[in-house]
Design a protein around this nucleic acid. Structure first.
Lengths: 229, 229, 229, 229
DNA sequence: CATGAATGAGATTTCATTCAT
DNA sequence: CATGAATGAAATCTCATTCAT
């Protein structure tokens, strides 16, 4: 009893080639596992950003994370799962917390609005979050659940916070226009501009996003105070 | 075998009266060629919009255009060329013309701004142009030359027109803030919001883009008039 | 507008290498298509028989059929579909027809039984049908619908025919035992033996399947005539 | 670090009393090793039966046996070796013994034949042996040495015993036909039917294998007695 | 001895592109 | 000019096998 016709060419066509391999196998501590997960997610973010979902090659993600292709599948069951985990891992927390803190303070609505836009500068535009946002903008058209998730977790909350600020300003007599309460998108529109511009045109014409948001703050507040509507 | 292959030897059999032609070796008139080209571009727009560049299938483009797949290659040498031709064919003209007309009129800058935003409503948001814009936003990251082209042909001109309007308003004393002259993006930011929102979140929460732009116009003009900066 | 970052390495990473290619593209006549389909099915039969479903490589099927790997997918949408088409194409017809013809004749049941076993010799054991049977025996455990299909189309009909013959023989007084009417499998059991033996042990010890079935016919008929039960 | 690695240097630390051993470097007793081997074989049987050789996952085998995947390789050097060991471990013994016992008895050949078929009922069809047989039938085409081994160890002996019984019956005048001595396969054919049918069609149409073999015994013996050949 | 994370060859499947007719 | 069958590179995902701990 032995070999058999040719179930597999030679006993080890499949299975390793025995390369360098720094460390190999024993039980990973949760920290180690998390570190690898993060390395993979970081690599994935890079590649998805550079190429988009469809064009992104898992080979490349693995390579940049310094692991073999198959290893990736020990952490994420599919390309889509990787993508979703990536998005999920990056949009999460700071928004609602920041919003609540902002609303708890006893300061003029104007200060709040400026604080909000400053927050956008430091927490979105200055971080990878702006890239995630761009990725979502690019891909969510083909990932409806992702769009819904993002809308619920990020957009909805953000709009709610903006609306609260404006309403408070109107109630206190600080603002005369409630246009921005009806369309909180107007408050954040320049953030979107900054995100998109950065992704598309920065190589051609750099945009001073900080100046943009400052100018927007001024203009917006002037409008809210002066508006007769 | 007896397939006409001797017909059409010189490139200009065209002017002809279009006789029987049992559909074998036609000799297309320029009009016919253009019609086919347009059919292909229209089909391509649909498919690229639905699927994105990578996921779009040329099979499907050809099918929707009613031609064989190989035919597509008689009109465009590659998928990329098709995509670029598509974008090129759709962004071009109306903007600069409209802008110049606007600037020639002797009306208050406010009216011009409102006219501009109205133009955006009718000529962008209410047409396929918004879809093209979204397509560009999604894909231009991976087509730098496309981004540059779009920036040059559309964005740059648009920003120039906006800046002219604002400067005129400032000069005439109508506006006190020149923030929007320094950052004309602030004027169009809500258009971008409308485009992106429509593409991503409309299924979840519809946005009244017309109301959005109206509110923006009010707020913006109030800001420009009241701003002290 | 042009290339773009690197949507694809060089314009033609994907798509042909331009080999020999005997004939290439124009509309296939139904005959041609059928011929190719048959070539593919024939190649598939070989490969599935040699390797079993799981081990069979579509590469090899394509190669043996003389086409490229992708071509196979123009004819069958998946490996499983190919497998099912293969089985379907090979088990079909001759059985029921043969059975009905047999039953219509006005001959002794014994003659019918011998005819049936002769039919098995010439139409199953001497043809590829025996290989198909073996393939089904090997794989149907993991293709329940295939088993059901085969049972319905082949086994059920066969058993029905056998039962009819036996019952006729009993009714006419030719046979005294009706054991084989209750278990028509007993009549065909040696056919199964021949099929399995041929596939597994012929290299080790050849089996005279013709002699086997003749001996079986004698023994069976003697049993049916002499049986007291 | 302080992980015992100096323990077990010579291969025979075994006989030992099995002390505390905080589960680190055990030193298995032969019994323990055999128990694990059996657990692995049992698990392997299940998985190979459910999936077939190719589709069987060693992961699953290890899991069902309650060991890590790597451990499996301490017991069997490859998937193929595991498969072969499995078959080897299951087909062996009871047949030749039973056969010899049968032949030693001083009973009519008919009784022997009935005994043989009864043995098949209880020792094959009612046990996992029928599953092993099916596994062999399915896979031996691709494991020629397995087929040869099985033929030598099981089939050959079985046929020899059958032949002896028939010859004895002919010699004693009990049987008139020697067809079954020339083709002992005829005696066991319904066992094969039972095995195959059970594996393929039981879900569709249950077969009374016991009744089948009883009917076969009657018919066969009637045939052997009455046959004039 | 046992573990189980890591590996990477290889399988199926897709689709832009070509070219004989 | 148009066709559409054919091509084959390349992508995702699987899993037998290895080996540091």
């Amino acid at each position: 009893m032995a070999k058999g016709k040719q179930v597999r060419k030679s006993a080890s066509t499949r299975g390793a080639a025995r390369p360098v391999r720094k460390r190999a196998t024993p039980a990973l501590t949760p920290d180690e596992r998390e570190a690898r997960t993060n390395a993979l997610l970081a690599a994935a973010l890079d590649v998805f950003l550079e190429r988009g979902f469809e064009s992104a090659r898992l080979d490349e993600v693995a390579q940049r994370a310094g692991v073999a292709k198959g290893t990736l599948y020990l952490y994420f069951p599919s390309k889509e799962a990787l993508f979703e985990a990536l998005i999920g891992s990056l949009i999460a927390s700071p928004f609602q917390a920041a919003g609540e803190v902002l609303l708890k303070q006893d300061v003029p609505a104007e200060t709040m609005l400026r604080g909000l836009l400053h927050f956008a500068k430091t927490e979105i535009l200055a971080t990878r979050r702006k890239d995630v946002a761009r990725l979502i903008i690019s891909e969510a058209g083909r990932f409806p659940e992702l769009a819904a998730f993002y809308h619920r977790e990020v957009i909805g909350r953000g709009m709610g916070i903006v609306r609260s600020i404006i309403e408070r300003g109107v109630k206190s007599g600080e603002f005369r226009s409630d246009a921005a309460a009806r369309f909180p998108q107007l408050v954040v529109a320049p953030i979107l501009v900054a995100i998109v511009w950065t992704g598309l045109f920065d190589r051609v014409q750099k945009l001073d996003t900080s100046g943009l948001l400052d100018a927007h703050a001024d203009l917006l507040i002037a409008g809210l105070k002066g508006g007769t509507q």
